[in-house]
Amino acid sequence: MATETTGVVTGAVAEKALLLLKVGIWMCSIVPPRTDMSERKSLFLASSEVDCTKLTTLMRGLCKIDQVVGLFNAIGAKWFQPNTITCGTIINGLCKTGNTRAAIELVKKMEERNWETNVIAYNMIIDSLCKDRLVAEAFDFFSEMIHKGFLPNAYTYNSLILVLCNSNQWKEATRLLNEMVNRKIEPNVRSFTIMVDALCKVGKVAEAVEIVEVMIRRYKEPNTVTYSALINGYCLQSKFHKAKKVLDLMVGWGCTPNIHSYNILINGKTSNRITTSEPDASPWPTS
């Protein structure tokens, strides 16, 4: 093969490697019909010097998803039992190119053939369904995942919480956050930040502040994205004084603002909606 198994395969190298694999398949096709499967597999391995790890590396290097799926169908099912990394590579490619339904079919095929799958494969599909705003299908797949014994993690819930927030389904999003805790799945900083950002964008800054308080009580330090969301929320309400207060607290607590944080403040300050005659109060309760 033209690459190390741990290296990065470029499109050109991948095309050359794919040609070698096709030669290997052709060589297997011209052996006598009575040759048993183990001999055919040995001939294929000898002719193409490929294993499951190299196959996965090659798949990552191919430029077109149809090439990847074609290679998988031509080789994977015949000569290997693909591992979770190989199948995950294909599922990831299918989801990123808008072929989520094909990814779902691949998972079903994996399970029918008793190939190993994992929560990562389910997470990629759930995330892709959420990005396509197919909320009902995402939750159906989520239920199916749990029914089959796969324990969701914070990544699973974050995708679902985000799509609910973007659909203004705050009660359901909060219910999911509580469900995470009840399942003893610790929400991470992103879990809280998703809700803070979404609430601030629709003017529910008081509710966002409550989320930040819960976050701090659970020893999750707000990050730059969290603080920037709050700053944006106050600017949208024409409360530049409180927005600046959040920035000061952010710096005081050792969190460095980024260019986005400052851009929010600059845009807020120059907006006609901003007022500066607000009382000097903390942007969230001190209790």
Score class of each variant (00 low, 15 high):
5 T>Y: 10
5 T>E: 02
7 G>M: 03
19 L>T: 11
20 L>E: 03
22 K>I: 02
23 V>H: 00
25 I>L: 09
34 R>G: 09
34 R>M: 04
35 T>R: 08
49 E>V: 00
62 L>E: 10
71 L>N: 02
79 W>K: 01
81 Q>H: 00
89 T>R: 03
126 I>W: 12
126 I>R: 08
134 L>A: 13
139 F>W: 15
140 D>V: 15
147 H>Y: 11
150 F>S: 14
151 L>I: 14
154 A>Y: 11
155 Y>N: 15
159 S>M: 13
161 I>H: 09
161 I>K: 11
167 S>A: 15
176 L>P: 01
182 N>W: 04
186 E>C: 03
189 V>H: 02
189 V>Q: 08
189 V>I: 10
196 V>K: 04
200 C>K: 05
205 V>P: 07
206 A>G: 04
206 A>R: 14
209 V>D: 11
210 E>W: 09
218 R>T: 01
219 Y>R: 13
229 A>C: 04
235 C>Q: 10
236 L>D: 00
236 L>K: 15
237 Q>S: 14
238 S>H: 02
240 F>M: 10
248 D>C: 00
250 M>H: 01
251 V>Y: 00
253 W>K: 11
254 G>R: 13
257 P>R: 10
262 Y>T: 06
263 N>T: 11
263 N>G: 01
266 I>Q: 12
268 G>D: 14
268 G>W: 11
270 T>G: 01
280 D>F: 00
281 A>K: 15
283 P>W: 07
283 P>R: 12
